[in-house]
């Protein structure tokens, strides 16, 4: 099959990756620009990074965003694991179609609709908007992504392993904790990371769900971009991109190592 990899294929991949990565690369390069203009090179400087560290508003927003993302990822992964178990194993039960619909619909729902509807809910039940409402909103859409990731792993899981554990005297919960959970653990880690970045990135839903007290980093970036493009935003973007890239690379290395050690034993 390797002989199918032609020059045409190599060119497609090269052009595709150039298209995907050049804009990000340019953004990173210009974060080190001495000049205030983001399109004219004025020499190397890290002054925008130090300016960023002194910007209280950005630091506050970063702290809010981090707290929201950690809580969202954790709760959404737990709920997503439950929902995946229901989808893959519950068989037919009353309301299954509705449940499946509710899991898949948020994946493709335009964010403006999700955001607006959640905001109206929070107002209807008289909930003060702030960091808690952002978390609730993020958990709701993120848990559906977690469900999809975890259920794809659960589908290929050999259920007789769990039955064997139960036959050998393990309780249902024990069997789940000591057999199923370790096997689906890579999917759970992937789901946590995915929901974490989804929460970190979200602008639209957070804008609807938040109140005057809570501003997330994307909301802050959005309002500064509207005022004009600045190298400070480039510096902030570079930091965010490096953190995420590092996380993804570490996670995939960890996944690879786990796979190798499993195939060796």
């Amino acid at each position: 099959m390797n002989n199918r990899f032609s020059w045409f294929n190599a060119t497609s991949i090269a052009l595709g990756f150039a298209f995907l990565y050049i804009p990000i690369l340019i953004l990173v390069i210009f974060s080190f620009n001495e000049s205030k203009l983001v399109t004219v090179w004025g020499g190397f400087s890290t002054k925008w990074y130090s300016a960023l560290l002194e910007n209280e508003a950005f630091l506050d927003a970063a702290w809010v965003t981090l707290r929201v993302a950690v809580v969202t990822a954790t709760v959404a992964t737990v709920l997503g694991t439950m929902a995946a178990l229901v989808l893959v194993r519950a068989g037919r039960f009353k309301g299954r179609t509705l449940f499946t619909g509710m899991v898949y619909a948020p994946l493709v729902m335009p964010e403006v609709i999700t955001g607006l509807s959640l905001l109206l809910l929070f107002i209807a039940i008289g909930m003060d908007r702030g960091i808690v409402t952002i978390m609730l909103a993020h958990i709701t859409f993120a848990m559906c992504f977690a469900t999809v990731v975890i259920s794809s792993r659960l589908v290929s899981f050999d259920r007789s392993l769990e039955e064997a554990a139960e036959d050998l005297g393990a309780s249902k919960l024990d069997a789940f904790m000591s057999v199923t959970l370790p096997i689906i653990a890579p999917a759970i880690v992937a789901a946590w990371l995915l929901t974490f970045t989804l929460s970190l990135d979200d602008l639209v839903i957070a804008s609807f769900a938040s109140g005057p007290g809570a501003t997330t980093l994307p909301m802050k970036i959005y309002s500064s971009v509207r005022l004009g493009v600045t190298p400070e935003i480039n510096a902030l973007s570079t930091i965010l991109i490096s953190v995420v890239a590092l996380g993804v690379i570490l996670a995939s290395l960890a996944g690879k190592r786990a796979e190798i050690s499993r195939s060796e034993t």
């Binding site: 804009p23 995915l194 970045t197 970190l200 973007s237 996380g247």
Partner: peptide, 16 residues
Amino acid sequence: LPFWTSFLIRVYAWIG
């Protein structure tokens, strides 16, 4: 990988 990095930042990159 690019999908994991912020949507907003990737859109912003095109402005410049």
